[in-house]
Nucleic acid binder design. Structure first.
Length: 285
DNA sequence: GGTTCTCTGCCGC
DNA sequence: GCGGCAGAGAACC
C-alpha cells in the first residue's frame, strides 16, 4: 500500500471514530431513544451510510445500542429503592406495557425479581483444560457471561461465585460440554471467531470500551491511550484501563491486545504470561 | 391492519 | 467513501 493511501485511510478511520463516539454520547444522554435519521443528521451523514459505519465500528446497530442503553438504565433505576413502574418511566420507556414485553430479554427475568436481587438467575458453568491451563466457562440464559483462566480450578469457581453472588450456579450437563469445546477451540485459534451469544454485563462506559476492544484485529495491539482515543474519551485512560481489567470474558473480549505505550505488556487479569502467550500465538498466524 | 422505521444487499458515482 | 433504492421484516399506533 502506498504511504499516501494509508495516511488517508487512517484519517478516515479517526473521523469515523469521532462520529461513532459522538453518536454514542448522544444516545447515552438522550431522554428518549433517538431515531436513526436524527443521529445521522447529528453527525452529518446519510442515514444509510451512518447505519453502516456504526455497525461496522461497534458491532451493534444504532437501534440495538440504544436499546442496550435503555435496559441498562432500567437495571440502574431498579437498583434504587423504588417501584417497578417508577423505574420503567424514569429509564425512558414511554409505556410500561412496552417494557414488560421485553423485560424477559433485557433483564432475563421479571422486573420485581430483578429488584429483589436477581435470585432467579441460573448460571451453568464448567471447568476444562486448555493449552493455557485451567479454563472456566459460564453461561446464563442470555449467553456466555464468563470465560476465565487461571492456575487453580477451584479458585476460578470461587471467583465466579463472588461475581454472581445471588445467582443459582449449577454444574455442567452434556449440552454444556459442546459449548465449552467451542470456547476452547476459540481460545486455541482466536482468529476463527466465536460464534456464540455473549451476556455482557457492565456500565455504559465499560460496554463502550469492550466494544472497542472487539474491534482490535487479531495479531495487533493498541495502547491504553489509543483505546481511550478510539472511544472518544482521550482523557479517560485510567478508566479505560479499569474497564479492561473488569472484563469477564477472556479472549472473547480481547483485553490482552492492549499494552503499554512503550510496548511493555502491562498487566493481565489472568496472568501476564498468558497475555504474552496469546499475543505470540496471534502474531504467528 | 395500515403506517412508519430499521436493516441489508446491491449498485452508481 | 458515500449516497440511494428496493424489499423484507419489525415496531408502532
Amino acid at each position: 500500500m502506498a504511504p499516501a493511501e494509508s495516511i488517508k485511510e487512517s484519517a478516515n478511520k479517526t473521523r469515523h471514530t469521532a462520529i461513532i463516539a459522538k453518536a454514542c454520547q448522544y444516545i447515552e444522554q438522550a431522554e428518549v431513544m433517538p431515531s436513526l435519521s436524527e443521529l445521522a443528521e447529528l453527525v452529518g451523514l446519510s442515514a444509510y451510510h451512518f447505519h453502516r459505519i456504526f455497525k461496522q465500528a461497534t458491532g451493534l446497530t444504532p437501534k440495538a445500542y440504544a436499546s442496550a442503553q435503555l435496559s441498562q438504565r432500567v437495571r440502574y433505576e431498579l437498583g434504587k429503592n423504588r417501584t417497578v413502574t417508577d423505574a420503567i418511566y424514569e429509564a425512558g420507556y414511554k409505556a410500561n406495557s412496552r417494557f414488560y414485553e421485553s423485560a424477559d430479554q433485557t433483564l432475563g427475568m421479571t422486573a420485581s425479581k430483578y429488584r429483589k436481587g436477581a435470585p432467579g438467575i441460573t448460571i451453568r458453568f464448567a471447568v476444562a483444560e486448555c493449552t493455557l491451563g485451567p479454563l472456566l466457562v459460564a453461561a446464563s440464559g442470555q449467553g456466555i457471561c464468563a470465560i476465565s483462566l487461571g492456575n487453580d480450578p477451584e479458585r476460578l469457581v470461587h471467583e465466579l461465585q463472588d461475581r454472581f453472588t445471588n445467582a443459582n450456579l449449577i454444574g455442567a450437563d452434556h449440552d454444556f460440554e459442546t459449548l465449552v469445546a467451542k470456547v476452547i477451540g476459540f481460545i486455541e485459534a482466536p482468529q476463527i471467531g466465536l460464534d456464540l451469544p455473549l451476556d455482557i454485563r457492565g456500565t455504559a462506559f465499560q460496554q463502550r470500551v469492550w466494544q472497542a476492544l472487539r474491534q482490535i484485529p487479531s495479531g495487533t495491539t493498541v495502547s491504553y491511550t489509543e483505546l481511550a482515543n478510539r472511544i472518544g474519551s482521550p482523557k479517560a485512560v485510567r478508566a479505560v484501563a479499569s474497564a479492561c481489567a473488569a472484563n469477564m470474558l477472556a479472549v472473547a473480549i480481547p483485553c490482552h491486545r492492549v499494552v503499554r505505550i512503550d510496548g511493555d505488556l502491562s498487566g493481565y487479569r489472568w496472568g501476564v504470561e498468558r497475555k504474552q502467550a496469546l499475543l505470540e500465538r496471534e502474531k504467528s498466524k
